[in-house]
């Protein structure tokens, strides 16, 4: 398996000709307001290969969820408008496809699971009906066959007493069980790409561990590529192959998970790690990132993190930083990368 490699223009691409990425997003920008000066998502590029997990990390409003919804074709347009970019999925540009073709992909070749399974399951239908519906929408099977397939899916995601659960309504299930049903539904048509938006955030820690283990196991069995969107660095450490850190609509740092955790370069990534309390003995006060994400109409024209960055100077405020590659697919968008050399020079 190949690692995505950062090219000079900052885009990530698989270097091996054997495993082409399932999805390659290039220079994707999105706005919600016609004629707005700043884009909600700005010039985002990433790719994900079969059997691999890309984690997109960031805090509320960084654009991670909007990006995934745009990829699924679930953003209402207007108001949302894709300003630039392509998303190559199996050799076809998603953003150029007609809506009918995209509807055929959704829930079939690409599927999505959401944070709150209760709001994404229909309370008026049984679990079995909802899974079977997705199967019948994309495959030529009878009702009975779809139901049998639904039962198989419930067994696969390890729901206890699956025959009984098939006729249960969502409210009769626990949160962890509902998330398993969501996963069963998403995987029913063996998607090539699974997008999971904060799939374990609403769950307790022991249930979260069960779901993460399940996801990992299923991925190993099927080779599904996955984009996992999360704010939780612990979840990233647990499941990611590659990581893209987003801040205020831009990717500020990306690379293999070992590089992001072992050699973080962007001041935002560093501040984010410092904000998370460690599980070991207390190490004094937490490092913090001052202030909050600027609203879109006050977005600085240079680096968007500059107002909160302890290292920022006037150039950071005025000019968009370049994406600096460090090799092995690791890169950061910062005027001061690589950070150590620059800091030695300034101290």
């Amino acid at each position: 398996m190949s690692r995505p490699q950062a090219l000079d223009d900052g885009t990530m691409q698989s270097v091996s000709p054997v495993t082409a990425p399932v999805l390659a997003v290039k220079d994707f920008s999105l706005t919600f307001k016609a004629g707005a000066e700043t884009n909600l998502v700005e010039s985002v590029s990433f790719s994900v290969s079969p059997g691999k997990t890309l984690c997109i990390v960031g805090e509320s409003g960084c654009g991670k969820s909007v990006t995934s919804l745009a990829l699924m074709g679930l953003l209402p347009s207007p108001p949302a408008r894709i300003v630039s970019g392509t998303a190559e999925f199996n050799g076809r540009n998603l953003f150029a496809m007609p809506e009918r073709a995209r509807a055929d992909l959704r829930g079939n070749e690409m599927a999505m699971i959401f944070q709150e399974p209760m709001t994404s399951l229909n309370p008026a239908f049984t679990v079995g009906q909802q899974i079977a519906e997705g199967i019948m929408r994309h495959r030529d099977v009878s009702k009975g066959e779809a139901r049998a397939e639904a039962l198989k899916m419930l067994e696969w995601v390890r729901i206890p007493a699956p025959e009984k659960r098939l006729d249960a309504y969502p409210h009769q299930l626990s949160g962890g069980m509902r998330q398993r049903v969501m996963i069963a539904m998403a995987l029913a048509n063996r998607p090539k790409l699974l997008i999971a938006d904060e799939p374990t955030t609403a769950l307790d820690v022991t249930i979260q561990a069960q779901i993460l283990a399940l996801v990992r196991q299923i991925q190993a069995e099927t080779g599904t590529a996955m984009i996992l969107i999360t704010h939780d660095l612990g979840v990233v450490a647990e499941v990611a192959d590659d990581v893209a850190v987003m801040y205020a609509g831009r990717i500020v740092e990306s690379g293999p998970v070992e590089a992001i955790f072992g050699d973080p370069q962007h001041p935002y990534t560093i501040g984010l790690f410092g904000s998370v309390p460690s599980l070991g003995r207390r190490q004094g006060r937490l490092a913090t990132i001052k202030g909050a994400v600027p609203p879109l109409d006050l977005m600085p024209k240079g680096c968007r993190f500059a107002p909160r960055c302890p290292l920022a100077d006037s150039r950071c405020h005025d000019e968009v930083p370049p994406t600096v590659p460090f090799g092995d697919g690791h890169s950061a968008a910062c005027w001061y990368a690589p950070i150590e050399q620059t800091m030695e020079a300034r101290q």
Binding site: S174, V205, Q208, A209, V276
Partner: peptide, 25 residues
């Protein structure tokens, strides 16, 4: 013990298949 084990390892180097608590509360 089960609670502490369920916390995701904070470092990708420490990934292990933990012995998980089964079932719901």
């Amino acid at each position: 013990q089960a609670l502490l084990r369920a916390i995701p390892a904070p470092d990708p180097k420490d990934r292990v298949a933990p012995q998980l608590l089964q079932g719901d509360v």
